[in-house]
């Protein structure tokens, strides 16, 4: 059995090339593939066979990791369709979306300065709601709608939500440790 590097992650795991992935089926497919290619099974084989098995196992791990995470899966599927999500290069997000990010980041800074973990948890709930909404839109864009531009935009947006949740975690951790405060460039209130 030689690794076929032309097969994509979905094909490798025997799954349909689709954003909608059944988590249980994905786990099953991965365990099945791992069972067949795990290096332990080739311990008694020759060096060449062991090396091939290792390559398979590495590919299987990468495929599973990518498909298990919705954002990674979306980015991967979009790349298969010839779309670049532009996460490294596209800075022109919709103004209302960026304004919302600004407000959320400001709210994190305020919650931190006011040492108010409850406010930070409430904010996290709001962001989780927004995330769920975006995931539903992403499933629709990459599913029936086949609107890959919208898919790219949603992947970019979701990256901002990851960041703000990391900021909330940071703030809560700092409060738990008794630290606080925020950088002046981000905590000063403007006129608007």
């Amino acid at each position: 059995m030689k690794p076929d590097f032309t097969r994509n992650h979905f094909e490798l795991l025997g799954l349909p090339v689709s954003y909608a992935v059944d988590a249980a089926a994905l786990d099953r497919a991965y365990r099945d593939l791992q069972g067949r290619v795990h290096p332990d099974r080739f311990a008694a084989s020759g060096e060449a066979e062991r090396r091939v098995a290792m390559q398979w196992a590495t590919r299987a791990n990468e495929a599973y990791r990518t498909l298990r995470n919705p954002i990674d899966r979306a980015r991967y599927l979009l790349a298969l369709k010839g779309y670049d999500t532009g996460e490294e290069s596209n800075t022109a997000m919709p103004p209302d979306f960026l304004m919302q990010q600004m407000e959320w980041r400001e709210a994190v800074a305020e919650g931190r300065a006011a040492r108010d973990p409850a406010a930070l948890e409430r904010l996290r709930g709001e962001i989780e709601d927004s995330r769920a909404e975006m995931h539903a839109l992403l499933a629709r864009a990459l599913g029936g709608d086949r609107n890959y531009d919208a898919g790219c935009s949603l992947v970019r947006k979701l990256r901002f939500l990851d960041r703000i949740e990391a900021e909330i975690d940071d703030a809560l951790e700092a409060l738990a440790e008794g630290a606080g405060g925020a950088h002046p460039a981000t905590s000063l209130k403007g006129h608007d």
Binding site: T85, F97, M102, R163, I164, D192
Partner: peptide
């Protein structure tokens, strides 16, 4: 202030790091 005369605003964000 947004309505101040001659004021214009540029907003951008970097998805990879979440900077706004």
């Amino acid at each position: 202030a947004k309505d101040e005369d001659g004021v214009a605003t540029g907003m951008v964000g970097a998805p990879a790091c979440g900077d706004v």
